[in-house]
Design a protein around this nucleic acid. Sequence first.
DNA 1: ATAGGGTTAG
Length: 493
Amino acid sequence: MFALLRKPPKNHLHFFCIYRGLSPLTTTSPAPLPPAAADPAALASLILTSTDPRTLTQTLHCPSLHWTPQLVDQIIKRLWNHALKALHFFNILSYHPTYAHSPSSFDHAIDLAARLRDYRTVWTLVHRMKSLSLGPTQKTFAIIAERYVSAGKADRAVKIFLSMHEHGCRQSLNSFNTILDLLCKEKKVEKAYNLFKVFRGKFKADVISYNVIANGWCLVKRTNKALEVLKEMVDRGLNPNLTTYNIVLKGYFRAGQIEEAWRFFLEMKKRKCEIDVVTYTTIVHGFGVVGEIKRARNVFDGMVNGGVLPSVATYNAMIQVLCKKDSVENAILVFEEMVGKGYMPNSTTYNVVIRGLCHTGEMERALEFVGRMKDDECEPNVQTYNILIRYFCDAGEIERGLELFEKMGSGVCLPNLDTYNILISSMFVRKKSDDLLVAGKLLIEMVDRGFMPRKFTFNRVLNGLLLIGNQGLAKEILRLQSRCGRLPRQFKL
DNA sequence: ATAGGGTTAG
């Protein structure tokens, strides 16, 4: 992609837009005029449907288009689940005659390239940022480190963090806490804790550093380790705060230590510890997921007396656990109650209700809520589509699932990794050979869009294709799998 | 993008 645009035909394009009919380039195909207003949706679908990079470049470089960092970021966001298209777009604008990318757009591009595991492009972009004096910033390094960690290269991520000052980005307590958090969120708590112990003196670890590590231990259900770390914190003269207590509370619930959680909450109250909406939401959710609906309800109803109003997240927790452990009808009652009190449900709220209805087989009622969602100007998101696709397919209505998938692909809401996984596994329920062929094509498409299928998915699809005797496609997928493996991938950008 | 609460997945 870079090679293609090595010599950006700057001035030429200017003329092309004004004298469209006269340009020698029209011997191929005329570039469509860009949408009149700078509409991110229209531009994103233009980029998605374009097949000729040269024509697209001409359109996007047209002087009547007024680019801003916000517009560029909005378009990248819309193309997020089609990494190659998004990077192509970023790259075309890199050669715009007058517009220059913002640091935020660079960060997004770096994030996308890293998701493709195209580390060469990642570092090319970092250097370009540097030469334009736009970075790299601490955020840039957080993004890179996160991608390395999630690709199973935690050691590499740590090395990069330790050398970020060599790239002209200074280290700080913030960046230290960030790398610790990234490692913890990817369940590399042991590694985070070791790093913490080595550098806590140098960076002057604070209560946030300790909270991050404690939360890490909680995430792997080792609440006692979390408590140990926090005791150490207190011994060093740092005081826990409300976030610390909420982390521990959640930790108990996560580890299934329900009564310990409740005792801990009572202790918080007894000690006149400030209690906030996060505390209450944690308890409502925690009780609910183990089926203690009555206790969840009591806490939910009682929090107002404690002087704390529920948030949308609290309602979402209550509604979700009612769906799962009680009944959708009661969940919907709470939903209506929330609306009646003037709360605006968000997409999570709608998705929880929609999933609940799908789960009880009430697809049509679920679709009514999708309509209601739209009426509230809350557009169905990728999760909404994933829920509907999953349950349509589960109910044997695979055509309806595929129909929704097609709709997404048109640019409304591009499919993500989950969408592909859901759909691919649905292709095995009818045991039709055409379905298996579709599974193969979906697998190729998902890799093309920067999503890494699990080994299980590869094997499943390969077996399916061999079963129907499609050696050709199977071979293609095998090649794809070996490219996705250990070897760094280089998408020609 | 310096920490804590709601979607998910057999």
